[in-house]
């Protein structure tokens, strides 16, 4: 990641429409963008497409960005919204994995620390689309339930329910995972 000063200069160059500077910005934020998109979308190709669309949106609207603000939170919002746009078509609110009643069990922190990106993605694939999305929005990207409800056009209470079920599912999956990785 570029330091703040060089990022400001880079963004200023991108505002002039300099394609070479846009490429530089792309390559410096490629990993950041892909990391966010891949959490929401089920495969890398979709994530790359969403990330690229987000970059295009940024290049087109970068003149509206104030360099005094932090670029990453602004870009994160673009990435999340674009990813959600991709997901909306496939989302089914009725979809929900009927979880068996589970009792939260403790998992060693060391097991979590060892989770790689692939492990986490594999775990998340076991969640349904809505649970995964709500978990990402609330736990990782810091949105409130009210915002999530508005973004996904669901009641706030449903957002809470999806989050609870996502956590329960992940707990269960992590236990299974830790058993297999022991």
């Amino acid at each position: 990641m570029p330091d703040n000063q060089s990022l400001v200069e880079l963004i200023a160059s991108c505002k002039k429409g300099d394609l070479r500077q846009q490429e530089l910005l792309y390559k410096q934020f490629y990993g950041y963008a892909l990391g966010i998109c891949i959490r929401y979308l089920s495969n890398r190709d979709d994530a790359l497409e969403a990330a690229n669309d987000s970059f295009i949106k940024v290049f087109k609207s970068i003149n509206s960005f104030n360099e005094e603000n932090d670029f990453k939170p602004w870009f994160r919002k673009v990435l999340v919204n674009t990813s959600l746009d991709y997901k909306r078509k496939s989302m089914r609110f009725s979809e929900a994995i009927e979880l068996t009643d589970t009792i939260p069990q403790s998992t060693h922190t060391s097991a979590i620390d060892k989770l790689s990106a692939q492990d986490i993605l594999a775990l998340m694939k076991n969640l349904n689309e809505m649970q995964r999305t709500v978990f990402n929005l609330y736990e990782i990207d810091g949105y409130a339930h009210k915002e999530i409800a508005s973004m996904l056009n669901i009641p706030e209470s449903s957002s809470r329910t999806y989050l609870t079920r996502a956590k329960q599912a992940l707990q269960q999956l992590l236990i299974t995972h830790s058993i297999y990785t022991k």
Binding site: E23, Y26, Y30, L34, G35, A51, I112, E139
Partner: peptide, 24 residues
Amino acid sequence: LAHQIKSVFEDYDDGLGEQGWSEL
């Protein structure tokens, strides 16, 4: 768990940035 996920995906670079740029 959330912290681990954040740290893992904060800079998720699969080394294919060049290809990604070509796609863009």
